[in-house]
């Protein structure tokens, strides 16, 4: 098992190095950063001045070597626009993205597991049709549209939830960390928790519904595969209750592909749900990355891409380990 994990870690390291190098190459192929940093009235002299001040006039190879050496120390330089270390800027946004991703993920699982199981156990019945049709609709709805519709219904129509942001004005100083929702929950600070919950519900629903639709379909198909296996028939023949057959015997084996897919979904959610973050003004990494891309803030883009790649690779590593744990054949292969 240890050898298996070590091998996966090594692969993850290679992936990270590759992504870091590709990120540098792509960004430098997409245009002159000085052109986007200067206003409309700038003249050639201004461009030359900026290139020299920011180091864009140095040979590309030299810039790359320096970049990789610094990246190894997690130093991606200083943001051109914010004049602060790029990694610190990205890490500032991590709690918001983490909270949104985890809550959305939990929501997705809470919906996908029972609905998927119910759909499989009631195959070709109105329950199945209704569940699958809803999943199809959930998967087809564009995130920005869904977000705006939810705002229209729950914020403007029913006046139940806020339109945007993470907490209401005046609540934020109650939090010590950037994790408002979890901090409120664990510190039993009801005011902080309830306000953070109100704010996170709509974005988490928006991000989570899409994941839940995909997971529901997967749970259903995995369960259908497993429910027709001999050991399930044996379990039923033994006289076990249907609940035990489905939720204990069948679900464990059906969960192998589910773990893989759930891992990818969590990785995607942690990678920043750009559209959801934009619609709800949610200050996460996805929104930051888009803003940095729009303004060619190379250091921030590189730090964000590195962190997102790290998160994704790490989640996949965890999935691989879980996979090996669930199915021993994999770790001995």
């Amino acid at each position: 098992m240890l050898r298996y994990i070590a091998g996966r870690c090594l692969q993850a390291l290679v992936v990270l190095c590759g992504i870091t190098a590709i990120c540098f190459a792509i960004l430098h192929l997409t245009g002159d950063p000085a052109a986007l940093m200067l206003p409309e009235s700038a003249v050639q002299e201004d461009y030359d001045e900026i290139r020299s001040r920011m180091g864009f006039d140095r040979p590309l190879v030299e810039q790359f070597a320096q970049y990789m050496a610094n990246a190894a120390r997690l130093d991606f330089g200083t943001s051109y626009l914010q004049h602060r270390p790029a990694m610190a800027i990205v890490l500032d946004r991590l709690p918001a993205t983490f909270e949104l991703a985890v809550v959305a993920f939990i929501m997705a699982l809470i919906i996908a597991l029972p609905v998927g199981i119910l759909s499989a156990t009631h195959r070709n019945t109105p329950v199945d049709y209704a569940a699958m049709s809803t999943a199809l609709v959930g998967q087809s709805m564009p995130n920005f549209w869904l977000g705006l519709v939810l705002i229209l219904i729950f914020s403007l129509g029913l006046d139940l939830l806020p339109t945007s942001g993470r907490v209401a004005f005046g609540i934020e100083p109650r939090a010590v960390t950037g994790f408002y929702f979890f901090e409120g929950l664990f510190r039993l600070d009801w005011v902080l928790f309830s306000d953070a919950l109100k704010h996170i519900l709509l974005p988490a629903m928006t991000a989570g519904l899409y994941s839940s639709a995909r997971l529901t379909r997967l749970v259903r198909s995995s369960m259908l595969d497993v429910l027709s296996e001999d050991y399930v028939r044996t379990a039923r023949a033994k006289g076990l209750s249907e609940w035990v057959v489905v939720n204990v015997h069948a679900l464990k084996n059906a969960s192998i592909p589910l773990v893989t897919m759930a891992g990818i979904e969590l990785g995607l959610l942690l990678g920043g749900t750009v559209v959801t973050e934009t619609v709800f003004a949610w200050p996460g990494i996805g929104l930051l990355t888009i803003q940095a891309l729009q303004s060619d803030d190379f250091p921030v883009i590189q730090a964000a891409v590195f962190l997102l790649a790290f998160i994704f690779v790490f989640v996949n590593l965890v999935v691989d380990v879980m996979y090996a744990w669930l199915d021993p054949r994999i770790r001995y292969a």
Binding site: L148, I151, L152, P162, T163, S164, T278, F280, A281
Partner: peptide
């Protein structure tokens, strides 16, 4: 000052007095 980029959300926030 709150940065809301999305037009629809910005308008909804104004209508809701946020």
């Amino acid at each position: 000052a709150v940065p809301i980029k999305e037009d629809g959300t910005k308008v909804a926030a104004l209508l809701k007095r946020e």
